[in-house]
Simulated scan of single mutants.
Amino acid sequence: MLSESDVVRWRVPWFDGRTSFRDAWPAVEARINQVFDHDKFVNGQVTAELGQAIASYTGARYAVGVNSGADALYLVLRAVGVGEGDEVVMSDGAEWSSVAAVERAGATPVFTAKLSGRTRAVLAAHSYGRMPDLGALRKIAADAGVPLVEDGVPLGSRHDGVHAGLSGAAGAVSFAPDSTLGALGDAGMVITGDRELATRCMMLRHHGRTSEVPGSAPDTSGPAAMVGVNSKMDEIQAAVLLARLDGLDGALARRREVAARYTSRLTGIDGLGLPAQDVWPAYVVAADRRDDLAEHLTRAGVQTVIPRAATSLALPVHPDLSPGQIDHVCDAISRFYRGGRA
């Protein structure tokens, strides 16, 4: 197996946000300066402002900033009562991070629609922006009398007018740098319309302390009412996200352009199934000889990601990709299926 060290540099990296961050830097710098002016660097005023902005953008009543997308899902699972010995029914698109969050909560992931007396939640995963069958999953959850939870929620994705993450009890959002809205490190958020669930997530993110409720002062700490974790959002990450939020719709439009160019160039290649969706964290193809294709692309200087699904391969689709880089990826894929060299 070819290792990344065998490639001198990536001609087409999975993510390269230097141009976007350079363009956004004046606004980012101004927001970061606000953090220093406030002299509070974790879970403060800027995090609260970001929560309000994300709630407004998505239509959620509450948006709770946390340390990462993985923590967001873990805290939601805890907040809806998932614990030791329980089972969580997972959609087929769930990635390893979703599985890890379920196991971290003490539960067992179940990848069928089989319900049992131990079923405590149904998890709908938006894998790389692909919308799960929310109607079917809602029915499974309703039949079991358990909450529907969404993971991997891509900002800007909507179904029947409802933003992703709000079709059930809550949604977990990641702000990793390569997300549709990316920080300069890890950050995440829980979006929900349920005040009680939001309150529990606010408590759980701060060691279970009771002062973490909507409307209370964010810099006070009460007694611990439950066993929580330390998963508060860094103010600097919140500042970066607030500065970049105004450009989100433009970035989503650019990702659609990148995806459209992929589709135009790759249509008709035998052995390759192409995706169709509206929001593009990545461009995930269904590929015959997936692992061989991934190695072939690595040799061509193209960085890819292998999802959990057996034939899936995720291609980079970030806004800073040039037409030449997209064409390089497509040319390499075409050569692979024609039996040529990288």
Results as ranks from 00 to 15, higher is better:
158 R>Y: 08
306 I>E: 14
125 A>H: 04
274 L>V: 11
125 A>E: 06
155 L>Q: 09
107 A>F: 03
47 T>W: 02
15 F>Y: 15
156 G>E: 07
130 R>Y: 14
295 E>L: 08
315 L>K: 01
321 L>H: 02
261 R>E: 15
122 V>L: 04
242 L>V: 09
12 V>F: 12
73 L>N: 05
267 T>S: 12
119 T>E: 06
186 D>W: 09
185 G>N: 03
118 R>K: 14
33 N>T: 03
269 I>C: 11
12 V>P: 13
29 E>H: 13
43 N>W: 06
202 M>T: 09
64 V>Y: 04
207 H>L: 15
296 H>Y: 09
301 G>S: 00
52 Q>E: 15
123 L>A: 12
178 D>K: 00
60 A>S: 13
65 G>K: 00
266 L>C: 04
69 G>W: 09
12 V>R: 07
7 V>S: 03
83 G>I: 02
17 G>M: 05
69 G>A: 07
48 A>V: 08
190 V>E: 10
65 G>C: 05
162 V>P: 01
316 P>H: 04
108 T>L: 12
152 G>N: 07
241 L>V: 06
242 L>Q: 07
292 D>K: 02
231 S>H: 07
136 A>H: 04
209 R>F: 13
99 V>Y: 12
241 L>H: 08
286 A>M: 05
259 A>Q: 01
76 V>N: 07
285 V>D: 03
179 S>P: 00
